[in-house]
Design a protein around this nucleic acid. Structure first.
Length: 268
DNA sequence: ATGGTAGAGGGTCTA
């Protein structure tokens, strides 16, 4: 009995519906978590995605910016949207599903990018990002008794040395500054989350999920970052069988700058 | 130090 969950920052779900449909037909995960859907709830292509078997869809949309959604073949219950930092952004949604006799809460996050300048005194967007991470420290993987937890999303931080193409050259670049990387590792520690991508791929290996639109040739330069993550509670991590980062999706027609990441679980 | 690209929505803002 397997379970496949995909996370993908889609950078406009309406513009990229054709590649979302292609991906679902080809990979066929049980659950797809999207970030940066960039539309309001009633603009989300519910019918088209449901037609592929994903009849359970919960959305936290917003006009023009941000926005997250969970599209699932399995029933979703107890969906919840938390307004981190109380600014009214749509950057989180969670819901419960059942698999292999387990109850699991799935969190889908879109953490603020934080702007260009890594100094909250002159860049409020960086302050917002740090405040968001601070608030995430209160989220425990063991928050609900008898319920496992999975956390996915675009966390906009590459926490480890080999999560970026050049650790040394990235230390002052937003997404890899020490205050961010230490903050995200503290979110994991305090919440007792397991980094499933790094459980599957050793920390000594380069691992990226995002390549900038601004590169002349993203594949040749290969200056990527691991901004997208899949975490779980400790009871679920032994069930992980595989992680698949679909790098080729970065080269598809009119691509997102993020690629889909899929975790596969196998019940014992 | 700078500029490079992309999307939404019709301003610039966000990334």
């Amino acid at each position: 009995m397997t379970l496949a969950i995909t996370t993908w920052n889609i950078n406009s779900v309406r513009l990229r519906l054709p590649i979302v449909e292609d991906f679902l037909r080809r990979t066929n995960p049980d659950i797809l978590c999207l970030q940066e859907i960039k539309c309001q709830n009633d603009q989300f292509p519910v019918e088209q995605i449901a037609a592929l078997g994903y009849s359970n869809i919960v959305i936290h949309g917003q006009k023009g910016y941000h926005g997250v959604a969970i599209c699932s073949k399995l029933p979703l219950t107890e969906d919840h949207r938390q307004d981190y930092c109380g600014v009214g952004d749509s950057r989180h949604i969670s819901a419960i599903f059942e698999w292999a006799g387990r109850r699991i809460r799935l969190h889908n996050f879109y953490v603020p990018a934080g702007g260009d300048e890594p100094n909250r005194e002159i860049n409020p967007k960086f302050g917002h990002k740090l405040d968001f991470i601070e608030e995430m420290k209160a989220l425990s993987a063991e928050a609900e008794v008898g319920t496992g937890a999975i956390l996915v999303g675009d966390l906009n931080i590459a926490p480890l040395e080999h999560d970026v193409w050049s650790h040394k050259q990235m230390l002052k670049i937003v997404s890899h500054t020490p205050v961010e990387t230490e903050g995200l590792l503290e979110v994991m520690r305090q919440g007792a989350w397991v980094d499933l991508m790094r459980q599957h791929v050793p920390a000594s290996e380069k691992l990226y999920t995002w390549w900038s639109y601004r590169a002349k040739d993203w594949a040749a330069a290969d200056r990527g970052r691991r901004l997208d993550h899949i975490w779980s509670s400790a009871d679920l991590s032994p069930l992980l069988s595989r992680i698949d980062i679909l790098k080729e999706a970065r080269g598809w027609t009119q691509p997102s700058d993020h690629v889909p990441v899929t975790a596969y679980f196998k019940a014992a």
